[in-house]
Design a protein around this nucleic acid. Structure first.
Lengths: 206, 206
DNA sequence: GTCTATAGTTAGATAGAC
DNA sequence: GTCTATCTAACTATAGAC
């Protein structure tokens, strides 16, 4: 066999095929561990164990714990945006997208748990994901305000409701429901509760 | 001097006067540290430093880190209940109490931060405050459902709103607003937003 | 009631062989 | 790209003197 053919054969599946698979496995494990214990409470050691590799091997792919967290956040953002690109859909579609997103989230409790803990942890300036959450909330707030403004122009917003307060309340409901749901998953249906709220502040039939 | 008089003089200020003062100082420091870094991220060392005492001295008053956390939670519960005894006020008074409570919370960001982080962290079964938050949410949910049920009987609840979903949404709004407010305290007024929401789902003039 | 000293873990990160 | 081995620092908690 041609000694050169082996690496070429691997490259044939695409560049860094194995690296990408390893990175994906690490991100999955990191998500589980961070979701269980939070960012500060989760350890690289536990993540490495779950992947079945050594800690230094893990550090080869993500140079620091903060870098790994960033990788997890980016990974989930891409998936969320695929479900609900809230800044590019017209008003009503955007609102419906939020409900679809929440319904999907209910099928991945680990991700919900990670986000709920991180959003609260990252409130502190010193948290490595602080900047991420600040800019993320700015983006989400602006996008949802824009959606409600469109509904307002179409006369679809309830009386006495402003786009800004509607957006703030919608985001708050989504975040707050997660905590109650995580504490007792049988207590409520997040998507149903969100839809009920949106039916009250809009004239949409959701 | 009579060697017996010294201890008696101290006792004259009440039993364990000094101990109580030290415990209070520890609870204040613990609240600050846990609020900044979360329970898992906050260390007994930093708390002891802030009080100006050694770590073992701290352990003399609270036998474990979990015990110290419980002390902080109990301390804040007593204060919250003094502002809004939601299970003992009639419906409308209870709802007004919630707004008053949120307005008061806005003057103590550290406490808000601690609660937001803990509520999310304590979602996991393994968290030392898990049991506390489970029973606390049960109590709060039951109390607020009861308040909305009274409003319903008085015809003060908006059409299509049930006491249970009103309570779930109210609690979610309160919890969710905290995260947004902590990320950017100028972004919104928690009490105003809560009042706006309550005006929509009730016929109360708040 | 507070201290010094320290046990016993666990953490994130690095060096260098293969 | 993954490993063993190791470093340094931080953690909770305990023992025992004062």
């Amino acid at each position: 066999m041609d000694p050169v053919s082996a690496p070429r054969a691997r490259r044939a599946r695409g560049p860094y095929a194995k690296t990408a698979a390893t990175r994906a496995a690490i991100l999955d494990a990191a998500l589980e561990v961070f979701a269980e214990a939070g960012y500060r409470g989760g350890s690289l050691r536990h993540i490495a164990e779950r992947v079945g590799m050594s800690e230094p091997a893990l550090m080869h792919h993500f140079h620091s714990k903060a870098g790994l967290l960033q990788g997890v956040l980016d990974h989930r953002d891409q998936r969320s945006y695929a479900i609900a690109p809230i800044d590019r859909l017209p008003g009503e579609q955007s609102i419906r997208g939020l409900i679809a997103l929440v319904r999907h989230n209910a099928s991945t409790p680990g991700v919900v748990e990670l986000y709920a803990i991180l959003a609260a942890e990252a409130t502190s300036d010193s948290h490595p994901a602080h900047g991420y959450f600040v800019s993320r909330y700015e983006f989400v707030r602006a996008s949802i305000v824009d959606s409600f403004r469109q509904l307002e122009e179409e006369g679809q917003l309830a009386a006495g409701v402003t786009p800004q307060s509607a957006a703030d309340a919608t985001i708050a409901i989504m975040d707050g429901l997660q905590v109650q749901w995580l504490l007792d998953r049988g207590a409520l249906d997040m998507a149903d509760e969100l839809a009920a709220f949106l039916r009250i502040i809009t004239r949409l039939e959701l």
